[in-house]
């Protein structure tokens, strides 16, 4: 069960690549899809590796990505 989860606001992304490069567990990659401004936003390639550290959110100059810790109760971890 992944400890965290990435959320991406695709339309805000300008594809600088900071999140892809500096994610400590290499969860992300730039996708081949375009957003409406013509940038390639990131997508999650290894969801299971996300620790929810939110370094992607700290680096993103466009406020377009962030990560949250997964709630073990909601995720069914405790039941």
């Amino acid at each position: 069960m992944a400890k965290g989860r990435v959320s991406i606001v695709v339309e805000r992304c300008k594809a600088c690549g900071f999140c892809v490069e500096f994610c400590p567990t290499r969860v992300l990659a730039l996708s081949s899809a375009f957003n409406s401004k013509g940038y390639h936003p990131p997508h999650v390639v290894h969801p299971e590796k996300c620790s929810g550290c939110d370094l992607c959110g700290m680096y993103c100059p466009d406020f377009a990505i962030f990560a949250t810790k997964t709630d073990p109760v909601k995720a069914g971890g405790d039941k």
């Binding site: 300008k14 993103c60 100059p61 406020f63």
Partner: peptide
């Protein structure tokens, strides 16, 4: 938002 800063401009990162 989106703001006017260029792709990769560091100013937004400092705001985080």
């Amino acid at each position: 938002i989106p703001h006017i800063w260029c792709p990769g401009c560091g100013i937004g990162t400092t705001v985080n």
